[in-house]
C-alpha cells in the first residue's frame, strides 16, 4: 500500500434526526471519498438506527438523508461494519436495515454486500487496524 494512503474509520454512534451528527458525518464520508483513502464505516450504539429501512421524514418536516447510504457503493465506500451487540440490544436484525451493496469491477461488476455484521470483539480488532478514527 502506498505510503500516502491511510486507513480511515468513520465511527457512527448516534441516531439520525434527533441531532445532526449522523447527517453531517455522512457529508464527511461523501467528501472524503474524493481523497482515495482506505475507508471503513462502523455503526454501533444508536448509530445502527441510521441504516434503518423505511425512513419517512415527510411529516417530521426534515430532510431524509437515508437514501444516501445506498449510494455509498458508488463512492467506493464498500466496507460497512455493523456491531452485532448494538443491533441485538435494540431488537433489530439485518433485515431491519437497508441492503447496501457495491459492484466489484474485478469480478464482472458482481454485486457484493457492503454490510458486515461483526461482534464487538471483531470490530475492536478491525478498529485497531485503522490509522485514524473520525468521531461525531
Amino acid at each position: 500500500m502506498a505510503e500516502d494512503i491511510k486507513k480511515l474509520m468513520y465511527v457512527n454512534r448516534r441516531a439520525p434526526y434527533g441531532t445532526i451528527y449522523a447527517w453531517e458525518s455522512l457529508e464527511v464520508v461523501l467528501i472524503g471519498a474524493a481523497f482515495d483513502q482506505d475507508v471503513s464505516l462502523a455503526f454501533m450504539d444508536d448509530g445502527v438506527y441510521q441504516l434503518m429501512k423505511g425512513q419517512n421524514t415527510e411529516a417530521a418536516g426534515m430532510k431524509n438523508f437515508s437514501p444516501t447510504y445506498s449510494a455509498l457503493g458508488d463512492y467506493e465506500v464498500t466496507k460497512i461494519y455493523v456491531e452485532k451487540e448494538s443491533l441485538e440490544e435494540r431488537g433489530l436484525t439485518l433485515d431491519d436495515l437497508q441492503h447496501l451493496v457495491w459492484e466489484d469491477e474485478d469480478d464482472d461488476w458482481a454485486e457484493r454486500d457492503s454490510i458486515h455484521l461483526v461482534s464487538r470483539a471483531e470490530l475492536a480488532d478491525v478498529m485497531a487496524e485503522h490509522d485514524m478514527m473520525f468521531n461525531f
Binding site: 491511510k6 457529508e27 464527511v28 467528501i31 472524503g32 481523497f35 483513502q37 473520525f134
Partner: peptide, 10 residues
C-alpha cells in the same frame, strides 16, 4: 471545505 478535515487526517 470539509476536505480540509480529511486532508488534516491524511
Amino acid at each position: 471545505g470539509l476536505g480540509q478535515l480529511i486532508e488534516g487526517a491524511v
